[in-house]
């Protein structure tokens, strides 16, 4: 009896996860005339991937697919590069800022520290959409609109509170005795931080890096405000150009784009699977 329940449950999970993923996977390997057919592609082809990643999309093929509309879209190569740049810079900045902030919360005690830790939590759950209008105002004042590096700095609003909160937990798990021993041996505070705490918290740093990368990779809210011209678009903004009046213009290209853009976060998450469970709740659940 319980084996049947388990089996049915497992099938249900696989079907639920599988259905939305299967279609773009299949479509990305199909030639244009088969994109809306069910089943596995009869003439599998990689041309969708090659087309969106080559520097120019053959216009004939696009207009064929779209029918009456001719949508000339530049390739996905440039948005892909932009997304990688923004996410990488975000990860680097996040690691620097949040490790120092977390060290502060884990090792110092001062008046008002409780308020600071609560404020980090507050920033972690604060809904980012409220920041859109003020962000526009601030960035236009300092002339940083439409700048990819500025976008990385803006992404710190997502990544730093979360990373600080999580790294604090990892730093706290490093015994203070180790610090003391190093101080006795004549290490400075900075040396203790660099040579003892950071290496021991390495799993935490890797997890934080992955989460920050994926948060930045998937950001739409801030990219919509900051990025204004096509050559600076990141993947999410570029993906909208595959819709024409809410109709998909190039299913093959769009699905190839979704596979490429989705593969990276999935691989990153699965490779640190062990830590993801702790990471998601940021050490909050001690039940």
């Amino acid at each position: 009896m319980s084996r049947i329940v388990t089996f049915v449950g497992v099938v249900l999970i696989l079907v639920t996860i599988g259905i939305p993923i299967y279609w773009p996977l299949k479509t990305s390997l199909s030639p244009p005339e088969e994109v809306w057919e069910v089943g596995i592609p009869k003439n599998p082809t990689l041309s969708n991937y090659i087309d969106i990643l080559s520097s120019e999309i053959p216009k004939g093929r696009m207009s064929e697919v779209v029918g009456t509309f001719t949508v000339v879209s530049p390739s996905a190569l440039n948005p892909l590069k932009n997304s990688i740049l923004v996410a990488t810079v975000t990860v680097a900045l996040t690691l620097i800022v949040s490790s120092i902030a977390a060290y502060n919360l884990a090792r110092f005690s001062y008046r008002g520290k409780r308020f600071v830790s609560l404020f980090v939590l507050f920033a972690y759950i604060f809904p980012p959409f409220i920041l859109m209008a003020p962000l526009m105002f601030i960035l236009s004042k300092i002339g940083a609109l439409n700048n990819l590096i500025a976008l990385s700095f803006v992404h710190l609003a997502y990544t730093v509170p979360f990373s600080t909160y999580m790294l604090r937990g990892y730093f706290l798990s490093v015994p203070r005795d180790l610090d003391e021993a190093a101080y006795v041996d004549g290490c400075s505070r900075l040396q203790v931080f660099r040579k003892i705490i950071m290496p021991l918290a390495l799993p935490g740093l890797v997890t934080v890096a992955v989460f920050s990368f994926v948060m930045s990779w998937g950001d739409v809210v801030f990219s919509l405000v900051v990025l204004q011209t096509g050559e600076n678009f990141t993947l999410p903004l570029y993906a909208s150009s595959y819709l024409w009046g809410w109709e998909i213009t190039d299913p093959g290209g769009l699905s190839a784009l979704a596979v490429i853009a989705g593969m990276i976060p999935v691989i990153l998450f699965l490779s640190i699977q062990k830590f993801v469970r702790m990471g998601l709740l940021a050490g909050a659940v001690k039940a």
Partner: peptide, 18 residues
């Protein structure tokens, strides 16, 4: 964890097809 690992905008694209 795959659906959660996929950023929301990718999930949206997957469901455009659905």
């Amino acid at each position: 964890i795959i659906p959660y690992a996929l950023p929301p905008f990718i999930c949206a694209i997957l469901f455009w097809f659905v």
